[in-house]
Design a protein around this nucleic acid. Structure first.
Lengths: 221, 221
DNA sequence: AAGCTAATGTACGAACTAGTACGTTAGTCA
DNA sequence: TGACTAACGTACTAGTTCGTACATTAGCTT
């Protein structure tokens, strides 16, 4: 019945700034992702925390800054994941497919992040603009894509004349849409894009699409 | 200085139910698209109308139903556009490319609609679910895709074994992402996906991608 | 032309919500 | 061990926001 996670400290406060901040960020991420920026309730976030609303303002300053902090952490998670990318020992085709699959997996694993990005776009990316951490950092994946593309184009394997940013957009589009628009798509077309049974199907489809695009015989059209 | 649109009717009310409703829907579309469902203000919508808040409740019942009505009309616009589709006199490759281009154009021309769809997804498509008009109507484009796919597959031109819904998702992904995520993408990668100067570039890229996928030599991988 | 009703306007209230003033305590360091 | 400060809690407020009660009128119908 009683909490097992923490050493019992009957009636006494626990003082742990780092833990308190992390807990606020966790709950805030869920709440913002659940309801959008304006739909999220500061009181609700506080209530689902072991601390109080006062602490949110103490540590973050306000709702806007809290949302910005949530975004910063969420983008940080991706960047870390992308830094683990290790595909350059593969041939270009396999490397791109692997990259696409990892992007696919990351989107599927972090639906809350996708929602946050949707929300931030509704608000014109103003929080990203206001953040020092998030200004134009790009992503580690871009560098990887750049190198793979170069290798593939030099060898003649890749006929498409794309740059890394556009290819990244192409891959992300599919992954993002599938998660972000799951509900309307499902409601209108009766097909759940995130149905686990179809996961491999869509994962393969993405890889096929990207590889086909990169290696297509342009003379044919 | 005075209104030119309407016959001058000094101090008198104008009674025109259809016009009032349409005006409310117009303004509501903008306001919901601007700020999201919870960010949108009923008072603001009323203020930008020639009528009052009272009328919003009189005709639509409430904020939720108003948003549902906005969605219904927005989806209606697409469906109409799709009914104008006339590509079946083209060969399958040209037909699919044309279809992709029209989808691309429609997304670009209706950023508000894209935002509404994003917003509706944040809320789990609950308004679509609550709407009688929007329940599982599908889209006219799907039938067109189905027929083109069949022709292409029968002739052997199309090697990919996709169905219409998945192909529709693939095409929409790219178009949707480009508009919906314009702001975060621009902020993070310094590239405006909706830059008019790049419009043809992305339009062609989409067509190339879809055709490459459909006609790829699967044995090659 | 009288009356009836759909359509409209005004004014207000109840509930919610971001943010804050003020008070308290845990833990550290001289 | 005493005191200092970062960390925390409570209680409240000012402003907003959806929604409605009540009053009014345009214009059609007979």
């Amino acid at each position: 019945m009683t909490s097992v996670d923490e050493p019992a400290r009957p009636n006494g406060r626990i003082r742990d700034a780092a833990r308190t901040q992390a807990e606020i960020l966790d709950v805030a991420t869920q709440e913002f992702a659940r309801a959008g920026y304006d739909g999220a309730r500061v009181d609700e976030i506080a209530a689902r925390t072991r601390t109080t609303k006062r602490m949110i303002y103490y540590y973050f300053g306000g709702k806007e800054q809290l949302f910005t902090a949530v975004l910063e952490r969420a983008y940080g998670v991706i960047r870390e994941a992308e830094q683990q990318l290790d595909v350059e020992h593969l041939d270009p085709v396999a490397a791109i497919r692997r990259l696409a699959e990892l992007t696919f997996d990351h989107h599927e694993a972090h639906p809350d992040f996708i929602r946050l990005v949707s929300i931030e776009n509704i608000h014109g990316a103003e929080h990203i603009a206001a953040s020092e951490k998030l200004g134009r950092i790009g992503s580690p994946a871009l560098e990887v894509i750049r190198r793979i593309l170069q290798a593939g184009q030099k060898s003649g394997l890749f006929t498409a004349d794309v740059d890394a940013v556009d290819l990244h957009a192409m891959i992300s589009s599919f992954c993002f849409f599938r998660v972000a628009n799951r509900h309307t798509f499902g409601a209108l077309f009766g097909r759940d894009l995130v149905d686990p049974a179809q996961r491999e199907h869509y994962r393969t489809m993405l890889g096929d699409m990207v590889i086909a695009y990169l290696t297509a015989d342009r003379a044919a059209n």
